[in-house]
């Protein structure tokens, strides 16, 4: 049998006079405890865009003392109007997660571990392997004797995660190197 609220209170042994509140002063102090100290007050608001699906919801990052302290949907952006799904809502969790790769890492041939390296070292060594591969495999002409100026031994894969400005440079750089195996997530 379904119960009504009245039955419920009876069952709980509670009268109908209502619940006596704690003395006002006491309650207020405790409420203040909870209500004050909004973690985003005084934070700088930075508008950014969710890095997942192509709806591209806008997110406000609240930044205090050089750290992101909170993220939430941008209510002004006419598409998401402040809302976010689980992934967008997890932005703070994601940016500040312990699992991020924070340093350039290198794995030597036949090694079983990663080593930390400097960016200069990484670029220097990468330039060496790229040049070595390019020089060894570059085809000025294809098998039919037609000028092609390409290497088929270096490839590019990704990245729809990049910004337009980054994509523009990557495409330019790749064609400069003579790379023809260029592909990314649009083909997935």
């Amino acid at each position: 049998m379904d119960l009504t609220r009245r039955d419920f209170l009876m069952l709980c042994g509670i009268g109908f006079a209502g619940i006596a509140l704690a003395p006002i002063g006491y309650a207020k102090e405790l409420i203040t405890d909870h209500a004050d100290g909004l973690k985003i007050s005084g934070a700088k608001e930075v508008i950014t865009v969710c890095p997942f699906c192509s709806v591209s919801c806008h997110i406000i990052a609240h930044v205090k003392d050089g750290k992101i302290v909170s993220t939430e949907g941008d209510p002004d952006y006419p598409i998401n109007e402040g809302a976010l799904c689980a992934k967008g809502a997890a932005m703070l969790n994601m940016v500040n997660c312990d699992h991020r790769v924070y340093k350039p890492m290198y794995r030597a041939p036949y090694s079983d571990k990663w080593e930390e390296k400097s960016w200069d070292w990484m670029f220097g060594r990468l330039a060496e392997v790229i040049k070595e591969t390019r020089d060894a495999t570059f085809k000025i002409k294809n098998d039919a004797g037609i000028e092609v100026n390409r290497t088929e031994s270096i490839f590019w894969q990704g990245s729809s995660q990049m910004d337009n400005e980054e994509c523009a440079l990557v495409h330019q750089g790749l064609r400069g190197m003579g790379v023809v195996y260029v592909d990314h997530q649009a083909r997935i």
């Binding site: 939430e72 809302a83 976010l84 799904c85 689980a86 809502a89 997890a90 969790n93």
Partner: peptide, 12 residues
Amino acid sequence: ACRGCQVACKDW
């Protein structure tokens, strides 16, 4: 059930 609420609650 996008679970934005569940995760936003945790993040906040």
